[in-house]
């Protein structure tokens, strides 16, 4: 049995309790709402894109420690990334959280371009969620919402 501490690491608890980049952006260029109908959790992602780069990103919403920490860590690693880099981080995170073959404990799943290793490491604490299938959606909600925001904006994303 996995220890609860593998899921609720200090960094997760810290970001869950004190989320970074929390609150709306004034005049975001992109925005999307996310909703998990299963638990009622909601998240809104605010992005300001400048020349294909995430110049500013923030979030607000109501959720559990996992979803809040995941959103918080995501906004930290996504800041100043190009859309291509953001896509690579998304793919990396997805493997990490859903327990795909790659994305092991050393971080840096194949496909994570050079220069993003540090971001990969910072997401590592979220890997614990893959042992809790019922909670994976909590971790991925903010990420799917960010993806929807930068792709089109204005859509409501659901994970259930």
């Amino acid at each position: 049995m996995m220890d609860l501490r593998d899921l609720y690491q200090d960094i997760i608890l810290d970001h869950g309790r004190h989320p970074r980049n929390f609150g709306p952006l004034p005049d975001p260029s992109h925005l999307a709402h996310g909703h998990n109908p299963l638990c009622g959790d909601t998240v809104t992602i605010f992005v300001r894109l400048r020349d294909d780069r995430i110049a500013e990103v923030s979030f607000e919403g109501k959720g559990c420690a996992i979803s809040t920490a995941s959103a918080s860590l995501m906004t930290e690693v996504m800041l100043n990334k190009t859309l291509a880099e953001a896509q690579a981080l998304f793919a990396h995170f997805h493997t990490l959280a859903t327990g795909g073959a790659t994305g092991g404990l050393t971080g840096g799943a194949p496909g994570l371009p050079p220069g993003l290793e540090e971001e990969g490491d910072r997401l590592e604490p979220l890997a614990g969620v893959k042992a809790y299938p019922a909670r994976v959606k909590c971790a991925t909600l903010a990420w799917h919402t960010l993806e929807a925001a930068v792709r089109g904006g204005g859509t409501v994303v659901k994970t259930e």
Partner: peptide, 14 residues
């Protein structure tokens, strides 16, 4: 206080 019900349910399950 300070713990979302979903986190409670996961912890309780353990």
């Amino acid at each position: 206080d300070g713990i979302h019900p979903h986190d409670l349910a996961t912890i309780f399950d353990r």
